[in-house]
Amino acid sequence: MEASAIVQTGIHYGLHFLAPAGIAYIFYRDRWKAVWLILLGTMLVDLDHLLADPIFDPGRCSVGFHLLHSYVAIVAYALVFLVAKRGSILHIVSVGLLFHMLTDFIDCQMGTLL
C-alpha cells in the first residue's frame, strides 16, 4: 500500500470514528458519550454498500453512487437537521449522517489528489 493511500485511509477512518467524539464533546458535553455512540451508529448508512457490485471498490466515490449516499438522501438529511428539535435524537442522527457524507466527500476529493 502506498504512503498516500495509508494517509488517506487514516484520515478517512479518523474522521469517521474520532471526529464524532469531538463533535459530541464540543456540542453535547453533558451527554457526549451517548451522543458519540449515536453518531457512530449513523455509520450503519454504509450498509447500502452491500447493494453495489463490487461491494467495495477503493476507487469509487460513495457520494452520489450508493442509495443512502445519494444527493436526494443528503438533502433529506439536511432537511431533518433543519426541522428536528436541536439536541433530539433525530437531530443528532441527522448531524451524524451529514458528517458521514462530508467525510466520504473529503475522501473522494483526496482520492483525486493523492
Rank of each mutant, 00 (worst) to 15 (best):
residue 96 G to N: 11
residue 1 M to V: 06
residue 77 Y to C: 00
residue 13 Y to H: 15
residue 39 L to P: 12
residue 53 D to A: 00
residue 83 V to W: 14
residue 58 P to F: 06
residue 85 K to T: 01
residue 31 R to G: 14
residue 60 R to H: 04
residue 48 D to T: 00
residue 12 H to N: 01
residue 71 Y to I: 04
residue 29 R to Y: 12
residue 65 F to M: 05
residue 111 G to M: 00
residue 26 I to G: 08
residue 1 M to D: 12
residue 34 A to M: 15
residue 6 I to V: 13
residue 104 D to C: 03
residue 42 T to K: 07
residue 75 V to E: 06
residue 23 I to R: 14
residue 54 P to L: 00
residue 92 I to A: 05
residue 85 K to S: 10
residue 60 R to P: 07
residue 6 I to W: 15
residue 71 Y to M: 08
residue 13 Y to N: 12
residue 33 K to Y: 14
residue 98 L to V: 02
residue 99 F to V: 08
residue 26 I to K: 15
residue 109 Q to R: 11
residue 102 L to E: 02
residue 99 F to C: 03
residue 49 H to S: 01
residue 16 H to N: 09
residue 95 V to F: 12
residue 97 L to I: 06
residue 14 G to E: 05
residue 85 K to H: 08
residue 12 H to P: 01
residue 64 G to D: 03
residue 11 I to K: 10
residue 68 L to E: 04
residue 113 L to T: 09
residue 3 A to N: 14
residue 63 V to P: 12
residue 25 Y to Q: 10
residue 113 L to H: 11
residue 43 M to D: 06
residue 72 V to C: 04
residue 17 F to T: 02
residue 81 F to L: 10
residue 73 A to I: 03
residue 33 K to C: 10
residue 91 H to Y: 14
residue 19 A to G: 03
residue 50 L to E: 00
residue 65 F to C: 04
residue 25 Y to A: 13
residue 50 L to V: 00
residue 79 L to T: 01
residue 97 L to H: 05
residue 65 F to N: 09
residue 108 C to F: 08
residue 42 T to D: 04
residue 9 T to N: 15
residue 5 A to Y: 09
residue 46 D to H: 04
residue 3 A to P: 13
residue 31 R to H: 14
residue 4 S to M: 11
residue 67 L to T: 07
residue 5 A to E: 10
residue 5 A to Q: 14
residue 10 G to K: 13
residue 91 H to E: 04
residue 58 P to R: 06
residue 26 I to Y: 15
residue 59 G to T: 02
residue 83 V to E: 10
residue 99 F to A: 07
residue 108 C to K: 05
residue 96 G to P: 05
residue 35 V to F: 05
residue 45 V to R: 02
residue 41 G to W: 07
residue 96 G to R: 08
residue 12 H to Y: 05
residue 15 L to D: 04
residue 96 G to I: 05
residue 103 T to Y: 08
residue 106 I to L: 12
residue 90 L to G: 13
residue 77 Y to Q: 00
residue 13 Y to M: 11
residue 73 A to W: 07
residue 21 A to F: 13
residue 103 T to Q: 11
residue 68 L to K: 03
